[in-house]
Amino acid sequence: MAIKDYLRERFFPHMWCPGCGHGIVLNNMLRSIEQLGLSKNEIVMVSGIGCSSRISGYVDFHTLHTIHGRALAFATGVKLGLPELNVIVPMGDGDALAIGGNHFIHAARRNIDITAIVMNNRIYGMTGGQFSPLSGIGTMATTAPFRNIDHDFDVAELSKAAGATFVARTTTFHAKQITDIIKQAILHEGFSVVEILTQCPTYFGRKNREGSASNMMELYKKNTTPIGSQAKQENPELIERGILHEVEAPEYCNEYDKIIKAAMKGK
């Protein structure tokens, strides 16, 4: 497998549970990188804490496994430090949007050229199944034993409102689309958000009676639709997949380079 060249094979089999969607994200993210022909030395992967963040340990790039919620802030330092690097930041839903929510919106607002991947399994897996800001009303979790009364929010809408210039969504069922979208997200100059619905059969699936990993992926097939489809008009409950938002806007590091030019001239 060509993508094995990007793996730190000595740490396999990985630590994720059987059927965990995070492995599918890893699998297809590496295919994107391989298809883009990027060199391992030009990629920095920065992650935070949680099941998702362990992804950085498995890839043979420059890898920075940081603290909970702050991956994007570390990544901002890396990117501004050396803008020629490709900076990819995989995060869990809690990591990115609960403890890391502030960094998330501000990285989006700056439109710094970072690829943020939100691996959304709607649960805190590493700590054993607590509800996250994306679990949504009515779900069950160890910290919502009766039912969850916390509202969720739409990552894509939030990202757009905060200033992200590339926003896309797909699921682990749609593996080829993961590869395709991450490729475009990496190529996009600016802050890119890719939300990937990824199953946690161990906690979310079990607590919410969604069955096996395969069954949870069947639900992704059933409950999502390509953006702009007829199906969405007939059933507004469907979650849209694809590139939801893409605009061009000044990128932070480029803008800072202009500041440096002006400042050095003025001196």
């Binding site: 570390f74 501004l80 800072y256």
Partner: peptide, 28 residues
Amino acid sequence: PEQGGKFIQMEDEIASMAAIIGASLTGK
């Protein structure tokens, strides 16, 4: 910036500390 260096105002002190650590790893 007058000397070719970089300044960034972050969203809080947590992010500031994180950003300098990230930048240090790029050799700054």
